[in-house]
């Protein structure tokens, strides 16, 4: 298909030279949910050389409202998202090398993939993985693009190692909000908006138009018609442990990672997040009830049950997920409810 990129090469900041650069680049997308499937589709249509997409979940009915690569058939077959994404992406553009990985994006996996990656597009649903991406990106000097959305709002920020502040400069810790797409809902247009910003930045980075890269932190609400840009010129922290003068990449250290273990003989997985500021149990109980969970509890813990999901959550963020021995599945439920 000789002229399939003609409308893109006609755009002067890309041109034929830019298209040739795009064709030689490898993009890594972490997550194949709403942002991951959308970002992967735009990148595949744009003609990147290679695209790697990592996800640990399978396609569920509640994904179809906003996750653009998937169909009812994928739900019926309970296909892993990464596999379903690969199938559709190949039908869209057979010239792109698609690598799909079904599994948890651990720091080990990220480090293995980092070797020949030109760009990472964040499409994950939790800050622990984002902090690991942030450290890997600094360690291996890979640009990455933060993006997230909940309800009708979303945000994005482009991180270029050696130039911009990093996510650890901004957050300093792993925030647990308890507000996720599973507790606060999400609408398609907010997803599309984040994808628009992430993929615009991705194309600029792939064609190496560094002058065009957005330096501000974008933040919007599609229902309230808000759109703001926060300038970041003073956000870089010289003492930052991820991007500062003496980096230690703390989120690649075992003690800063969530521990996930099967409790022997109990068909239960224990999830222990690293030092958090604690969970507001009353607030979480309210959110879980709104989702239809049956919730009991006391000031120290809450227990919640809905269909196959049964778990106990402690004030320090630790949780016991009952009825499973599957670590990835347990962690997935945890992140979907707690962020």
């Amino acid at each position: 298909m000789s002229n399939r990129y003609s409308r893109q090469t006609l755009f002067p900041p890309i041109g034929k030279m830019g298209q040739e650069k795009i064709r030689t680049k490898h993009v890594l997308i972490i997550g194949a949910g709403a942002l991951g499937s959308g970002n992967a589709e735009v990148m595949t249509r744009a003609g990147v050389g290679k695209l790697t997409i990592v996800d640990r979940d399978y396609v569920e009915a509640s994904n179809l409202q906003r996750q653009q690569l998937y169909t009812e058939e994928d739900v019926a077959e309970k296909l892993p998202k990464a596999a379903a994404a690969e199938k559709r992406l190949k039908a869209i553009n057979s010239e792109v090398e698609i690598q799909s990985i079904i599994g948890d994006a651990t720091p080990e996996m990220l480090a293995e993939l980092a070797g020949d990656v030109d760009l990472i597009i964040d499409s994950t649903d939790n800050f622990e993985t984002r902090m690991a991406i942030n450290d890997i990106a600094q360690k291996y000097q890979i640009p990455w693009i933060y993006g997230a959305c909940v309800a009708s709002f979303g945000m994005s920020f482009t991180i270029i190692p050696g130039k911009t502040p990093c996510l650890n400069c901004l957050l300093k810790t792993v925030p647990i909000q308890g507000l996720t797409c599973d507790t606060g809902g999400i609408i398609g247009p907010a997803v599309q908006m984040v994808i628009a910003h992430q993929t615009a930045e991705a194309l600029k980075i792939l064609v190496e138009d560094w002058e065009a890269v957005r330096t501000s932190f974008v933040n919007f609400d599609m229902w309230r018609n808000q759109y703001t840009s926060m300038k970041m010129s003073r956000a870089k922290d010289p003492g930052c442990l991820s991007c500062g003068e003496h980096p230690e990449y703390p989120y690649l250290e075992a003690e800063n990672m969530t521990k996930t273990t099967v409790l022997c003989g109990r068909d239960t997985v224990q999830i222990r997040p690293p030092h958090t500021e604690g969970v507001d149990l009353k607030d979480m109980a309210g959110k879980l009830k709104a989702l239809g969970y049956e919730v009991k509890g006391n000031p120290y813990l809450l227990s919640a049950e809905l269909e196959d999901n049964r778990f106990v959550l402690f004030q320090d963020g630790r949780a016991l997920i009952h009825g499973t021995k599957d670590l990835a599945q347990a962690k997935s439920l945890y992140n979907r409810l707690l962020g």
């Binding site: 942002l35 932190f217 926060m230 300038k231 010129s233």
Partner: peptide
């Protein structure tokens, strides 16, 4: 996160009279 007059500000920053302060909670969904 906090912005003062549309610019990111760290926790130690001191507010001036008239400054517009925006409080932006980071979002995790994806």
């Amino acid at each position: 996160m906090t912005a003062i007059n549309e610019e990111f500000a760290p926790n130690e920053e001191v507010i001036q009279d008239g400054d517009v302060i925006a409080l932006i909670p980071p979002v995790s969904g994806g």
